[in-house]
């Protein structure tokens, strides 16, 4: 085993793996959100964007496999670390007190696993259309929407609007984003420490980056189901 391989298996090496994979996932979360916010720009914009992604072909598959691997690495490492951490204290304390640890920091595994469960639910819902209504099945037919350019594509816009008109579904997304925000509020601040940032000038950024990023992701992603539910978006879809 080389020094580098050994380091990757060490406690600090895996800390780096968590931070770098977590950062990559943050990049995905941001890009995914920015793309989807085109919902507010209307059907033409959102459907053209969706078609653009589909047309990437093999590139899209490369991105999907990359994302899946990063997810797998992040989760597998997290579970291994968590199991070791439990084993490191076989006998619990009768009395425990928390000082600097937070609800977010103590529930990283739980919030992480809930985010994973949500990701599967989200794929079932918007990618595989499990249990889709007739209206949604019609919207996702490959020729449901005619673009200004003349090309035909799925009506992703209608699919999203129809999906979020169900209050149960819309609220499940809001709840999932609250969980993700909690995960990010500790995770993103934590990255500074893990990657060795010691600058006193960045003290404030370290502290607030996580909560700020979590709040941004929460607000951005929740704006879509909430706007649909409130009837502010998608009145043209019947």
């Amino acid at each position: 085993m080389t020094r580098f391989q050994k380091a990757l298996r060490s406690s600090i090496g895996r800390k780096w793996v968590m931070a770098l994979s977590g950062l990559a996932l943050c990049g995905f979360v941001l890009a995914h959100m920015a793309g989807n916010l085109q919902l507010f720009a209307g059907p033409e914009k959102l459907n053209a964007y969706a078609k653009g992604l589909q047309d990437l072909g093999p590139l899209l598959w490369a991105a999907r496999i990359g994302l899946l691997s990063v997810f797998a690495i992040h989760v597998a490492t997290a579970l291994k670390l968590a199991a070791e951490n439990r084993a490191a204290r076989p006998q619990r304390y009768a009395v425990t007190q928390h000082d600097t640890s937070t609800l977010a920091s103590r529930t990283m595994v739980l919030t992480g696993l809930l985010v994973l469960a949500f990701a599967v639910y989200h794929l079932c819902h918007f990618t595989w259309h499990v249990g889709a209504s007739d209206a949604i099945a019609k919207a996702v037919a490959p020729d449901a929407y005619t673009l200004a350019s003349g090309g035909r594509t799925k009506d992703v816009y209608a699919m999203v609007v129809l999906g979020f008109r169900s209050p149960v579904i819309a609220l499940s997304y809001v709840a999932a984003m609250a969980v993700l925000a909690l995960h990010l509020s500790h995770g993103v601040s934590s990255v500074f420490q893990t990657l060795g940032c010691t600058s006193p000038r960045l003290e404030c950024a370290r502290k607030w980056a996580g909560p700020a990023f979590g709040a941004l992701v929460f607000a951005g992603n929740c704006s879509m189901p909430v706007a649909v539910l409130a009837g502010m978006v998608g009145s043209e879809v019947r």
């Binding site: 895996r14 084993a87 420490q193 893990t194």
Partner: peptide
């Protein structure tokens, strides 16, 4: 077989000599 650090910072709060958790970032 000590556990792994996940940045709870309880160590720094408990330290009777108030060693700052900055040293952990340096070690990383």
């Amino acid at each position: 077989l000590f556990g792994n650090c996940t940045n709870h910072y309880e160590c720094g709060a408990a330290c009777p000599k108030e060693i700052p958790v900055r040293v952990i970032a340096e070690l990383n």
